[in-house]
């Protein structure tokens, strides 16, 4: 047993705090919006130039001028504002966004993150990912623990990096890890997914980590 995509998204939603400005990446991170707690006041930023992103529109109410960074049709909220791409990345690079939740291909035990390029394959581009990991205050990665039986949590990334020492927290289908972005390399397993054993997660993780499961229970 491991967490489903929705359970991973729900776990990521627990990283939100009241008053946070948040950028959600494409894929599982997008699902996080479905698990924002009742009464929790967060503002979703979309890097193509919008703060205060609303839900998908009702059928027939789509507006081609109103899309998110995944090019999906969306809606406004009373608090919505629009701005240019330069202002948008000023928010991101300038450290005004509290939390970025995004996917990754690989994360290393020192927080290096790779999610944009596989050499030899057609590269689609990094979009805003490099700016987000470099500029947002806290970076949470949500990803499958393995890709086709290969570990994704590594001693060192072997894919070209998106950012160096940028990941703070990694949520996989098997568990949750914290990573130190500064100073000594320090990766800790703080939670196991339902029904996952320590032996299983150790077998499927190349990165060196310490086990700190009690820290959460306490």
């Amino acid at each position: 047993m491991a967490w489903t995509r929705d359970q991973m998204a729900a776990r990521a939603a627990r990283e939100l705090q009241d008053g946070f400005y948040v950028n959600l990446g494409i894929g599982i991170p997008t699902l996080v919006a479905n698990y924002i707690q009742e009464g929790m006041d967060v503002r979703l930023q979309s890097e193509n130039g919008m703060l205060g992103m609303g839900p998908f529109p009702y059928d027939g109410e789509e507006d081609a001028d109103l899309i998110n960074a995944g090019k999906q049709t969306i809606t406004t909220l009373p608090e919505t504002s629009f701005f240019s791409s330069a202002d948008s990345f000023g928010m991101i690079r300038g450290g005004h966004i509290d939390l970025s939740i995004l996917g990754a291909m690989q994360v290393a035990e020192n927080g290096d993150l790779a999610n944009w390029m596989i050499p030899g394959k057609m590269v689609k581009g990094m979009g805003g990912a490099m700016d987000l990991v470099a500029g947002v205050k806290r970076v949470v990665v949500v990803m499958e623990h393995e890709a086709k039986g290969q570990a994704k949590l590594l001693r060192e990334c072997n894919l070209p990096l998106t950012g160096k020492r940028v990941a703070d927290l990694v949520i996989t289908d098997l568990g949750v890890f914290t990573i130190a972005r500064r100073g000594e390399v320090d990766m800790r397993l703080i939670e196991l997914a339902d029904g996952v054993t320590l032996d299983e997660i150790k077998a499927k993780t190349e990165a060196h980590f310490t086990v700190a499961l009690d820290a959460v229970a306490a």
Partner: peptide, 11 residues
């Protein structure tokens, strides 16, 4: 390829 924010700022 330019990171999106770098592209916006370069312009």
């Amino acid at each position: 390829f330019n990171p999106q924010g770098t592209l916006a700022e370069r312009i």
